[in-house]
Design a binder for these strands. Structure first.
Lengths: 303, 303
DNA sequence: ACCTGTTATGGAAAAATTTGATTACAGTAC
DNA sequence: GTACTGTAATCAAATTTTTCCATAACAGGT
């Protein structure tokens, strides 16, 4: 029983029509399709009802297309082509790919990974438009909600159905002017606590990971200066007695002539790439994820 | 058991995908389609296999399209549009119609009907290209074989699966110079037989119908002049003692100042329009046939 | 951790397609 | 004209696909 007539119009039935048209014979079309003649006849009957036209009439040994059939055959061929393309596995050529990608991360990743990444992608796939948003504390939620396609974050979540891949490890180090008294000796915990710190507190509530390290629990650091972003601190710290605790890669990237020293504790973390099931199967996104991984591998080796 | 995977891709399945996309929910799509949710789920499952992508993933209350799904949705909409158009009854607008029509007939129809017809059609449907071929004796065969789409002929065939429509009747009359002795009195069979005739014998073996009339059986007409076509006889006959037997409409059309007289026999015939099942359902051809009928009706009333 | 609304799954029922056998046609050869 | 040949249409039965109902599994939101 049928409601209306969404019609038995399908790739299969259209292919059948086309074959009958080309072969001028139901029998021949049937063989080509690996069916028998009554099956083709049945399909044709369906089409006749759907299109309100006999489409083919008996003529000599076989059938001849009607006027209407001639008229619609080009369109039928278009439809077959279009449907076949749908079935084709998604083909992805970076050079021609035209799409939008949104990546969420925080300052660290923005400084350490993104510049290289943007360069790489805009070289290989100039028509991919990338948008970067800040994760703050809710990166996984953004990903969950489809507010972004990718997340770069050291924060680990397992309970959610997200895909992930670890890109690299990093650890916190201390950065200070080469003139600083602590620059010449190993820093003890006591040294560290008593030193005047520059602390970066991003907006959005993000708290640097090293503050959670067990050795610093219950300790109140002597914060001499608090800045809202890492990028502005270099000239500030260079000639003061402040010391700074930050990830090593970032320290190397922006530390300039300053001294990198081992802190009196060990705080390591892994940077992860997260994505969700929406983009998991997409060839385009697979390629983009690869580029991110490659970019990070590149960072490692040129280190 | 399936050979390959011509896939369950169909108008129905594509519409289902589109509805899920629009509604963000299988349940809602199901209601819209007048089905229940598992049916939609089943269709989606088929599509997932065919397209090798989940297409939709669970998300909140409902589903969210995957990247690939977004990517292909425009094409899916195109396909739905295309298929729906196929199902649309053939729309025919004379002004825009662009097609070829071949009509077979003989000299009589070419002179009596075609000029008016061509004028009419080229006015209403300037992009219909018309081709006229000569029937000679094989008009019905030409139609049968698809060498023409239409046939104008007084010859009757019933045994074949052709469609027909009678356009009008005509009868044979005599045409002669007004100076001719027979122009002033009723023509007896004896007069007729003894008169000098102009006979038109077209190439292709066509024999004028009046020669088959019972009254003339076994009679050898006194043929003083035989011409291959009717168009060239007017100046020739005008000043001679020849008489001509031809259909009345033709006589009126080209007889000029000459005299039309009743022949000593009655020979009537019907002119029929024939077509075949190839064009029978075509809206375009239906319109063209109508134009032919109207043209002939017009001939009648302005007579 | 418990509701709530939604999708996925399993087995039965219904509908569709396909099959094999046969009949009806159309054209051709005789 | 009549029989012959190759093909399409038709019929009932077998098979496959689709739909349905009931229910389980999920994902969020409270």
């Amino acid at each position: 029983m049928e409601k209306f007539d969404y019609s038995t119009l399908s790739l299969k039935s259209l292919r059948t029509l086309k074959l009958i048209y080309e072969q001028g014979s139901l029998t021949a079309a049937a063989i080509e399709l690996g069916q028998n003649q009554p099956a083709v006849s049945y399909t044709l009957e369906q089409m006749r009802e759907a299109l309100h036209d006999p489409l083919f009439v008996r003529s000599g040994r076989g059938v001849a297309p009607t006027s209407r059939c001639h008229q619609i055959m080009p369109e039928i061929e278009n439809l077959i082509r279009g449907m076949s393309e749908l079935l084709q596995p998604e083909e992805f050529e970076p050079a021609n790919a035209d799409l939008d990608v949104t990546l969420s991360c925080n300052q660290y990743e923005l400084q350490v990974i993104v510049p290289e990444l943007v360069q790489r992608i805009s070289r290989l796939a100039p028509n991919i438009r990338m948008t970067f948003i800040q994760s703050h504390l809710s990166g996984h939620q953004q990903l969950q909600r489809g507010q972004c396609d990718l997340l770069l974050s050291p924060v680990v979540h397992d309970y959610e159905a997200l895909y992930q891949r670890t890109l690299f490890q990093d650890r916190y180090v201390c950065l200070m002017s080469a003139e600083h008294p602590l620059a010449r000796r190993q820093i003890s915990l006591e040294d560290y606590v008593q030193a005047r710190h520059l602390e970066v507190r991003y907006e959005g509530g993000w708290k640097p990971l090293y503050l959670n390290t067990p050795d610093l629990q219950g300790v109140n650091l002597n914060v001499g200066l608090r800045l809202p972003s890492v990028s502005s601190f270099i000239p500030t710290i260079a000639n003061t007695g402040l010391i700074m605790t930050l990830p090593e890669r970032l320290a190397r990237l922006i530390g300039g002539p300053m001294q990198i020293k081992e802190p009196p504790f060990s705080c390591r973390f892994e940077l992860n790439l997260y994505w969700n099931k929406i983009t998991h199967h997409s060839k385009a996104h697979q390629w983009i994820r690869e580029q991110i991984i490659n970019t990070c591998t590149g960072l490692d080796t040129t280190e």
